[in-house]
C-alpha cells in the first residue's frame, strides 16, 4: 500500500502549461507517476510532451480518468482552481501553490470536507510514495522505499530527515508534506490516521514547527488513537514571538505556538522528540529496529 498516492494514481496537473507546472509535472511523470492530463483554461486540445491538455479539470476526469489533481496555479487564482478540482470528481487534491490568502482557504477547506475530497496543502511540497508515485516537488532521490511514514510541515527539513534515514539504510512508505500555511487541507491528525491504517507503515516520523496548535492536538490524538510508534521533530526553538519565520503559519502569537510547548505536549504523551533532524532520524531508526 502506502497512502494517498500509489500505482493507481491518475494525475491531472492544473497549470501544466506554466513553467513550474510543466517542469514538476513532467518530473513526476518521469518518476513513473501516471500523468494523464493537464488543465489550462483556453488551452484545451493542446498537449505537453504528449500529455493532453483540457480546459477544465472535470473534462480531465471524464475524458482521461484523472483521480488526483495537483494545483500549480498562481496564488491569486489557486483557490478557484482547488474549488474546481473539489467539484470535478477527483478524490485527492494536492495544492503546491504558496501564498494563497487565508480568507480564500477558509471556505475551500470546508468545501473539501463537505464533499469528502482529500486536500493536501496548500504551500506544500506534495506527496511521494517511493517506488510508486510522486506528486509535487519532493526530490525522490533522497528517499528509499521502506516502512517509515513521514508527515511534515516543511519541505527541505523533510528532505534532510529522509536523506538521513536513507543513509542509515531505512526507507519510507509515503512522505506527506502537509504545508506551512495557517489553514491547510489535511493536518497531522488526518495523515497519522492514514499511516496507522497502512500495513506498509511500521513507524511514523512527524515534523512540526512553531505556530498554531496542530502538534499539541496531534499529541492528544496519538495517545488516544495511534497504535504505531511516532517520533517527532519540532523546528523553531529560537524563534522570537510575533515574527513570521518564512512559512505563513510559522509564528508564535503571544505565548502560544512555541516549539517548547509542542515538545512538552508530545513528550507528555510518550512521543520521543529529537533535538535535531539528525537525532530524530536516529531515534526513528533505533525504534524501528527494536520492533
Amino acid at each position: 500500500m502506502s497512502i494517498i498516492i500509489d500505482n493507481d494514481t491518475k494525475l491531472v496537473v492544473s497549470g501544466l502549461t506554466g513553467r513550474e507546472g510543466s517542469f514538476h509535472g513532467l518530473r513526476n511523470k518521469a518518476y513513473g507517476t501516471r500523468l494523464v492530463a493537464g488543465v489550462t483554461p483556453g488551452k484545451g486540445g493542446q498537449d505537453v510532451e504528449g500529455t493532453p491538455v483540457f480546459n477544465t479539470i472535470e473534462e480531465s476526469v471524464s475524458e482521461a480518468g484523472a483521480n488526483t489533481a495537483m494545483i500549480f496555479v498562481p496564488a491569486k487564482f489557486a483557490a478557484g482552481s482547488i474549488n474546481e478540482a473539489i467539484d470535478s470528481g477527483v478524490d485527492t487534491v494536492i495544492a503546491i501553490t504558496e501564498g494563497i490568502p487565508v480568507m480564500d482557504m477558509l471556505p475551500t477547506y470546508w468545501k473539501a470536507r463537505e464533499k469528502g475530497v482529500r486536500l493536501i496543502g496548500p504551500n506544500c511540497p506534495g506527496v511521494l510514495s517511493p517506488g510508486k508515485a510522486n506528486v509535487g516537488i519532493i526530490p525522490a532521490q533522497f528517499f528509499d522505499q521502506g516502512r517509515i511514514g513521514v508527515v511534515s510541515k516543511s519541505g527541505t527539513l523533510t528532505y534532510q530527515i529522509g536523506n538521513e534515514l536513507k543513509q542509515a539504510g531505512e526507507g519510507n512508505s509515503t512522505i506527506v508534506g502537509i504545508g506551512g500555511d495557517p489553514i491547510i487541507g489535511s493536518d497531522f491528525i488526518d495523515i497519522l490516521t492514514l499511516f496507522d491504517a497502512d500495513p506498509e507503515t511500521d513507524l511514523i516520523v512527524m515534523v512540526g514547527e512553531i505556530g498554531g496548535d496542530a502538534e499539541e492536538r496531534a499529541a492528544e490524538f496519538i495517545a488516544a488513537e495511534i497504535s504505531k510508534p511516532v517520533v517527532a521533530y519540532i523546528a523553531g526553538f529560537t524563534a522570537p514571538p510575533g515574527k513570521q519565520m518564512g512559512h505563513a503559519g510559522a509564528i508564535i502569537s503571544g505565548s502560544s505556538g512555541t516549539a517548547k510547548a509542542k515538545q512538552e505536549a508530545l513528550e507528555a504523551k510518550g512521543v520521543r522528540v529529537g533535538e535535531s533532524p539528525t537525532e530524530a532520524a536516529r531515534i526513528a531508526v533505533e525504534t524501528l529496529r527494536s520492533m
Binding site: 511534515s152 510541515k153 516543511s154 519541505g155 527541505t156 527539513l157 523533510t158 534532510q160 506551512g180 515534523v207 514547527e209 512553531i210 521533530y233 523546528a235 523553531g236 526553538f237 529560537t238 524563534a239 519565520m245 518564512g246 512559512h247 510559522a250 516549539a259 535535531s276 533532524p277
Partner: peptide, 12 residues
Amino acid sequence: GNGAGLCMSTLD
C-alpha cells in the same frame, strides 16, 4: 538556509 523549516532548524 534554504527552506523555512531547515532554516529554523539551523538556528536551533
